[in-house]
């Protein structure tokens, strides 16, 4: 993996759409905004936690911005007015940390491991991870530039599957879409994505997957205008309640 440089990341941020609402620290009226930038795979559990956070904090709106972890890290480094950053791997969090954009030590709050998803009904009769090796099976995975891609590559090697994916999607949602549309017989996605996809896909385990999960880290952002609220959000994510919501969404515990 080649290192992502801070300056380069800044341009990456400029090239990517900026997040709605992340440009404002506090709204025009007297309501307070807490801006949370989170990896796209956290969409479902963080949406739910945001509702609970708002319910317990009068006058606070939680604004959530979801994107790829590297994009978000780059935005935070560039000084995007955010309060909390949650990434899907340690590498991207380290970029923000090394640039001094985070406050305190980032905390690992969840893990995510890869599973095989097949379209509902499993039309290609994919029964195991080893079936990806079959000639008549078309499967897709993430490109290695994404954390899910390096994980997938690692697991394919560990399980001695030499057949290559038909397509290297740039993010895990694109992998899921290809499977949901039945364009691919199988795909390698995070367990949390498989849960979020519901009935449209069926899930198969990947041997050795739990040995190399992806860690999710969260940290308050240095330039946060609401450091106390940011700390409370981190607390909520690390709490038992947070653990519960992440569990339901298919995430593993912070230590596998």
């Amino acid at each position: 993996m080649r290192p992502l440089r801070a300056g380069a990341a800044a341009l990456a941020a400029a090239l990517t759409l900026t997040l709605a609402g992340c440009g404002v620290g506090a709204s025009g009226d007297d309501r307070t905004r807490l801006t949370v930038l989170a990896a796209a795979s956290l969409t479902e559990p963080f949406d739910e936690l945001a509702q609970e956070f708002e319910a317990s904090h009068d006058g606070v709106d939680v604004v959530l911005g979801y994107d790829s972890s590297s994009t978000l890290a780059a935005q935070v480094v560039e000084g995007a007015p955010a309060d909390v950053l949650a990434t899907a791997d340690a590498r991207t969090m380290r970029i923000a940390e090394e640039a001094g954009a985070t406050r305190g030590e980032p905390a690992t709050f969840a893990t995510n491991s890869l599973v095989v998803v097949v379209p509902a009904g499993n039309p290609a009769d994919v029964d195991s991870f080893a079936d990806l090796q079959r000639d008549d099976v078309t499967y897709v995975a993430c490109a290695e530039s994404a954390p899910c891609g390096t994980l997938a590559r690692d697991l394919l090697d560990r399980n001695r599957v030499t057949a290559r994916p038909r397509s290297l999607e740039v993010d895990v949602k694109a992998v899921l879409t290809k499977v949901e549309l039945d364009e691919a017989d199988a795909g390698l996605v995070y367990a949390s994505d498989a849960v979020a996809a519901g009935d449209t896909v069926e899930t198969l385990p990947v041997p050795h997957a739990s040995e190399a999960p992806n860690s999710y880290l969260v940290a308050p952002v240095q330039q946060s205008a609401e450091p106390d609220l940011a700390a409370e959000w981190v607390e909520l994510v690390l709490s038992d309640r947070g653990r519960q919501v992440l569990d339901d969404a298919g995430f593993g515990g912070p230590t596998p």
């Binding site: 992502l4 990456a12 530039s145 038909r166």
Partner: peptide
């Protein structure tokens, strides 16, 4: 899709690389 040599055109390669390098 996006696979080198088959469907990965220049813009796709740029976008893929953008994620890391």
């Amino acid at each position: 899709g996006n696979y080198p040599g088959v469907t990965q055109t220049m813009p796709l390669a740029v976008y893929t690389l953008l994620q890391e390098d």
